[in-house]
Write a protein that binds this DNA or RNA. Structure first.
Lengths: 228, 228
DNA sequence: CGGGTGCTTGATACCGATCAACCCACGTGG
DNA sequence: CCACGTGGGTTGATCGGTATCAAGCACCCG
């Protein structure tokens, strides 16, 4: 497992500064947070941490994708969230219990910024900018996950896929083409589907003008998708 | 619709001070927040607000239960969260867009504490205690809703019910009896089930020593429930 | 060429939603 | 006191959607 902890190189620093949790900070809060960040990378399938382990750091993705998921006692997995570049996770532990509450796995090779929970907690106490940025992040994640619950409970597989596509194509366009940023099996998990169900959902959407070849998705009629 | 806005009476003040979002505050932060609170009550089935409406206040439940839910375009409803006494909701809008993101309905007669979003936001900027308390609340809700996603995706109806019962009976007990604090149909929604499915799940749990009469639930063997 | 891996397709089983009927407790009014 | 209506809950029958299992396919890379 390749996960040496390093200072951030200048390219990673640039990426990190554009991440939402950093971008809204004033200059000195930004410096303070950047000083707390270290870099770490993992290979695909590496486990970053497991549910129940002692939590001492939270992460912000610089490149690649990370899967947050739970296991039931039979060993079945359910994805809770997929985190891509600029997204942070486990920051909710800043003010909660001492253990991780889900598993995190690299879906591919990833580089991450690492933040010591205790140090960021201390920084947030002293700098309102940092506290505000954390609250924004928490509030955003909360709404995202609430959306997820509502979608799971209200939408069928083709509707979830249509919804995902609409959220990932330019607004106000009549047609669009999208390149998935990750494997279809990952998208399936994100949408709460088995890979087979995602495949069938794409077939069902062919009738609505959706063409799939590999990671490329052609949408002929965006409005037709909205009717699904 | 009975929803006159009043100063809190002394009984409501006592309840509110014990709510998690207030209980962790130091004395002057507590006073500051108590001064911002006003009281409002609704009858069962009243709508507190709808998705998309301009959001100017968030709430803390003093008595009764509130349903947060979404609609799909066919008008079907899906509950996102059920809030009981001491719980607050819509506080995530403190640092987000100007509109409510879900509907809120009184499941029965309720009394609520009302907080002006802008005033609390200003208070949080000045008082770290308040900011910390909000972060704790957000982090808690985030984990709760994440649990909800994982449970929806991993558990069958009887498992969800068993899980709910276990979370609501004293730890380390061999048997227990529970009185549901609300209607079964509300529990069904909370667990992402149709009322009929909840009813069937209870029947299925009879084999595991669960007896239901009205709102009273007898659990003969807590450990048997854990095996479900 | 051979063997992965990711994806698709088909057959089947299961779970829960839905619809409909019924039950029961309760309150109301004749 | 009883007829009636209402609301919450249960039960049964059916349907639809998705998981699961199994087989086959396409592509990449050694």
């Amino acid at each position: 497992m390749v996960n040496k902890i390093l200072r951030l190189n200048s390219r990673d620093r640039n990426i990190l500064m554009k991440a939402p949790i950093m971008a809204s900070l004033g200059p000195q809060a930004l410096n303070r947070m950047m000083d707390l960040a270290s870099a770490v990378s993992f290979e695909g399938r590496d486990i970053l941490f497991r549910e129940g382990e002692a939590a001492d750091v939270f992460y912000c993705v610089l490149s690649g994708y990370v899967r947050l998921y739970r296991l039931n006692k039979d060993g079945r997995e359910a994805d809770i969230r997929i985190c891509g570049p600029g997204e942070n996770f486990a920051e909710c532990l800043l003010y909660l219990g001492p253990n991780y509450r889900y598993n995190a796995q690299a879906a591919e090779a990833v580089t991450l910024a690492r933040f010591d929970l205790a140090k960021v907690r201390a920084a947030a106490e002293q700098d309102n900018d940092i506290a505000r940025s954390i609250m924004q992040s928490l509030a955003n994640h909360l709404l995202t996950v609430m959306d997820c619950v509502a979608n799971d409970r209200l939408q069928t597989a083709p509707q979830r896929v249509a919804h995902y596509l609409l959220n990932n194509c330019p607004k106000e366009s009549t047609s669009a083409s999208i390149r998935l940023p990750f494997q279809k099996s990952l998208l399936a998990g994100k949408l709460g589907l088995a890979p087979e169900a995602l495949s069938r959902a794409f077939s069902a959407l062919r009738g609505a003008g959706v063409t799939v070849r590999g990671r490329l998705i052609q949408i002929n009629d965006v409005n037709a998708l909205r009717q699904i």
